[in-house]
Design a protein around this nucleic acid. Structure first.
Length: 438
RNA sequence: UCCUCGGUAGCUCAAUGGUAGAGCAUUCGGCUGUUAACCGAAGGGUUGCAGGUUCGAGUCCUGCCCGAGGAGCCA
C-alpha cells in the first residue's frame, strides 16, 4: 500500500481526524442529490457519516460514479473530514475519491428501503436487516450483556465449563425436546445445561455454562424462541439464600454495564433510560404466597398451587420499578431436582426473577436436591427413565453437598434492557415456531 | 392445539358488489446544502390458492395455505 495514502479510519473515530484526509471502507446507506451536489451517506458498521460531492470541486468521473451509487453498494471513500453543524452527527466527509467495490445493480435494488416494512418481510431478509442502525444497536447491547455476564462470573472465581448440546435424555421430560438421530439412536438437543453443571460444580466449586438451549414447544408469543441462549451458574455448598443475592447482583451489574458502555445504543433504541437507572440492588423479594395474594388483589384468577401465567407476571412486575424476586413456589409446579423447604415441604427452595414492565421471567433457579433417596424417589414419581439418570445419581453417591444455581435467558434480558416488543430482534437469526430461515 | 386479526405493485397501504389506486423503491428529466430532500414524467398487478353465489367478486360464502398477536408451556 502507498505509504502516502490517507489512513483508514472507522466512522466512530472521524472526530479525531478533523481537517485530515481519510479513507472509509463501508457501504452506501442513502443518497440525496441536488443538481450539482451529492449527499451520499456512508456506513461502515461503526456509524454513519454524510459525504459531500460537489461537481465543480471533484474530477468528473468522481461525480459521475457518485451519481450512480445505489443503496448498500460497497465502497472505499477518500475524503477530508470536516466539522459541519448541518450534517447529521456533526461531521461530514468532503469526498475526493470513490472506489466502488461492488455496485448493487439498480434493476435488482437492495430490498430494505429507508421506509416502513412489515415483520414478515424483514424477517425474511434478516441477513440484510442486521445492517440497519437499530439492529446494529441491539447487536451491540447483546454483546455487552453477554460480556458483562461473563465478566461477572469470571471476576467471582467461577470456571466456565461447557455443557453438551446433544444429550441422551431429557432434563425435565422429553415432550418439549427436539429429537435428532444420533447414529440410529435417539438423542435430544439440550434444554438446559443444569444437570451437567451440577457435576461441574462438584469439580470446580463454582461454575457456569453459557450456550444455546432448545425447546420444541409450539409457543407463539413475543417472549419465546425455539433456540435461545442461557447462562447458568451453579455453586457447591450454596443454598437458596446464597443464590438469590447472586442473581440480584448479576442483573444489577449487567444493567449498570450497559448504561455505562452502551448508552448511545440504548438512546438509538429510544429506551427510557430512567427505568433502567432504577434497577439497582436490592430488588424486592416476595414469597410465592405473598405474590399470589397480590395477584388475587389485582384480580388474577390464580389459586395457590398454580404457576403464574404471562399476565400474572406482568401484573406483579407492574407493582415495582425494578426486577422482582419470587421464591418458594409450590414443589408441584417445579422440576424434580428442586430441593423442598424442610420447614414447609410443599414448597421448593426455588427462585424466579421477573423483569419489570411485563418482560417476564428472566431467571429461574434454586437449591438442588442433594439427598440420594429423595432424588431417586422424585425421579420415579416423575416417571423418568432411571438408567439415564444414574450418572446424575452418582453425584449424590460420592460426596454430595448442598448446591444451588440458576439460569438466565439472554434474549429476554436483551429484550427488556433494549425495550423491544419481541425477542425475535434480540438474536441475530431467530428460530421460532414458523421461522427456520434465513 | 385453541382463540382473534390479516394476505391487493418490489415495499407500506387504499379501493359502498360496478373501469384496481397512492406513497416509497426503480428508470428518465430538473435543482450547488440536502436531512426518510424536493419537483415533473414513465414502467410496474393471475388482488395467497381452489371452488361457489352473482349480469358483475379485491369485496359475499366454503375449504385450504401462509403470516401476526394472544392462550397453554416456559427462559
Amino acid at each position: 500500500m502507498d505509504p502516502n495514502s490517507p489512513p483508514k479510519v472507522e466512522i466512530r473515530n472521524v472526530h479525531q481526524h478533523v481537517d485530515q484526509e481519510v479513507v472509509i471502507e463501508g457501504w452506501l446507506y442513502n443518497l440525496r442529490e441536488s443538481g450539482k451536489i451529492l449527499f451520499p451517506i456512508f456506513r461502515d458498521g461503526t456509524g454513519l457519516i454524510q459525504g459531500v460531492v460537489v461537481k465543480s470541486a471533484v474530477a468528473p468521473e468522481v461525480f459521475a460514479n457518485g451519481r450512480e451509487l445505489t443503496q448498500e453498494s460497497s465502497l472505499r471513500v477518500t475524503g477530508k473530514v470536516r466539522a459541519e453543524p448541518r450534517a447529521p452527527g456533526g461531521f461530514e466527509l468532503g469526498v475526493t475519491a470513490l472506489e466502488v467495490v461492488q455496485l448493487v445493480p439498480a434493476d435488482h435494488a437492495y430490498p430494505i428501503t429507508p421506509k416502513d416494512h412489515g415483520v414478515e418481510f424483514l424477517m425474511d431478509h434478516r441477513h440484510l436487516w442486521l445492517r440497519s442502525t437499530r439492529q446494529r444497536a441491539i447487536l451491540g447491547v447483546r454483546h455487552e450483556i453477554i460480556k458483562a455476564c461473563r465478566d461477572f462470573f469470571d471476576d467471582r472465581g467461577f470456571t466456565l465449563v461447557d455443557t453438551p448440546i446433544l444429550t441422551p435424555s431429557a432434563c425435565e421430560g422429553t415432550t418439549t425436546l427436539f429429537e435428532v438421530d444420533y447414529f440410529d439412536e435417539k438423542a435430544y438437543l439440550t434444554q438446559s445445561g443444569q444437570l451437567y453443571n451440577e457435576a461441574a460444580a462438584m469439580a470446580v466449586g463454582k461454575t457456569y455454562c453459557f450456550g444455546p438451549t432448545f425447546r420444541a414447544e409450539k409457543s407463539k408469543t413475543r417472549r419465546h424462541l425455539t433456540e435461545f441462549w442461557m447462562i447458568e451458574p451453579e455453586v457447591a455448598y450454596a443454598g437458596l439464600d446464597d443464590i438469590m443475592p447472586l442473581a440480584e447482583e448479576l442483573v444489577a451489574f449487567v444493567v449498570r454495564r450497559v448504561l455505562d458502555h452502551r448508552r448511545a445504543e440504548i438512546e438509538t433504541l429510544g429506551r427510557d433510560i430512567a427505568k433502567l437507572e432504577a434497577c439497582t440492588a436490592p430488588f424486592p423479594r416476595l414469597t410465592y404466597d405473598e405474590a399470589v395474594e397480590i395477584l388475587i388483589e389485582k384480580g388474577s384468577e390464580i389459586t395457590w398451587g398454580g404457576d403464574f401465567g404471562g399476565t400474572d407476571e406482568t401484573l406483579l412486575s407492574e407493582k415495582f420499578d425494578r426486577p422482582v424476586i419470587v421464591h418458594r413456589y409450590p414443589s408441584q409446579v417445579k422440576a424434580f431436582y428442586m430441593a423442598p423447604d424442610t420447614a414447609r415441604p410443599e414448597v421448593a427452595l426455588c427462585v424466579d426473577v421477573l423483569a419489570p414492565e411485563g418482560y417476564g421471567e428472566i431467571i429461574g433457579g434454586g437449591e438442588r436436591l442433594a439427598d440420594y433417596d429423595l432424588l431417586l424417589s422424585r425421579i420415579e414419581e416423575a416417571k423418568l427413565p432411571r438408567e439415564a439418570f444414574e450418572w446424575y445419581l452418582d453425584l449424590r453417591r460420592y460426596g454430595t453437598v448442598p448446591h444451588a444455581g440458576f439460569g438466565m435467558g439472554i434474549e429476554r434480558v436483551v429484550a427488556w434492557i433494549c425495550g423491544l416488543e419481541h425477542v425475535r430482534e434480540t438474536i441475530p437469526f431467530p428460530r421460532m415456531l414458523n421461522r427456520l430461515t434465513p
